[in-house]
Structure formats: C-alpha cells, structure tokens
Simulated scan of single mutants.
Amino acid sequence: MRSISPEEVHALDDAVILDVREPHELTQARIDGTLDIPLGELVERLGEVPRDTTVYVICHVGGRSAQATQYLEANGVDAVNISGGILQWYQSGLPVTLGGAS
C-alpha cells in the first residue's frame, strides 16, 4: 500500500480525495471538494469511486483510510493512503473548513 503526506497530496493539481469518515466527523472539519463515502458504506458504493485517476484516501488519523485503500486496490482502484489523516492535514496548516460539532 502506498502512502502520501497531506502536504504532498495538497500540492497536486486536481487530486481526487476520498474521505471515509462518518458524516458527524465531516461536520467538525472537512476538506472542501472531497468525495465523502463512510468506510462502512464503501463496499456498496464502490461504483461511485473513480477508476480513471488516482484516488487519495483520508480519514481522521489514517487507520480507516488504510483499510479503505487496501480494499480499493484489491478492487482495481489506484488508491493511495493519506498518512496522518485530517488531523495531520490540519496540523500542517493546510486548508480545512471547520464546522459546528454536534
């Protein structure tokens, strides 16, 4: 499984980022423009994941995105795990939209 740092993926033009966190997590902090499919729905929603480009997968700290990346790779998707998740993304000073946690 390949991994990439938040800084490296942010520097890419038109990167497709798949966020596998739960909806309530997205209300707390999110990256604008991501494809949002919770890990628990990934199997049934696999058809929504692009197959014509590399997909960069993110979660909170990197565990769920690693699982999702392995699943996607096994199903023919060129997927790369974003190490450290959105927590590392935020700590690196990269843009996030913060919202009201419920």
Rank of each mutant, 00 (worst) to 15 (best):
I4F: 13
V16W: 09
R30P: 11
S5F: 05
S5H: 08
D19A: 06
D14W: 04
T27E: 12
R30D: 13
S3L: 09
Q28R: 11
V16P: 07
D19H: 07
E22N: 10
A29E: 06
H24K: 13
T27A: 11
D19I: 01
L26C: 04
L18R: 01
L12K: 08
A29W: 05
H10Y: 15
A15F: 13
E8H: 12
D14R: 06
V9E: 00
I31R: 12
D32W: 03
P6Q: 01
P6A: 03
A29T: 12
E8T: 15
D19Y: 02
A11Q: 02
I17R: 00
D32T: 15
D14P: 14
S3K: 12
A15H: 05
P23I: 02
L12P: 06
A29D: 04
I31F: 08
V20Q: 06
S5Q: 04
R21G: 05
L26K: 09
Q28N: 07
D13N: 12
V9A: 01
E8Y: 07
P6V: 03
I17L: 08
S3M: 06
A29V: 14
V20I: 09
D14T: 13
E22Y: 13
A15D: 02
D19E: 00
G33T: 07
E22M: 03
D13M: 13
L12A: 07
D32P: 13
E8S: 13
I17Q: 03
V16D: 08
R21S: 05
G33P: 06
E22T: 15
R30V: 14
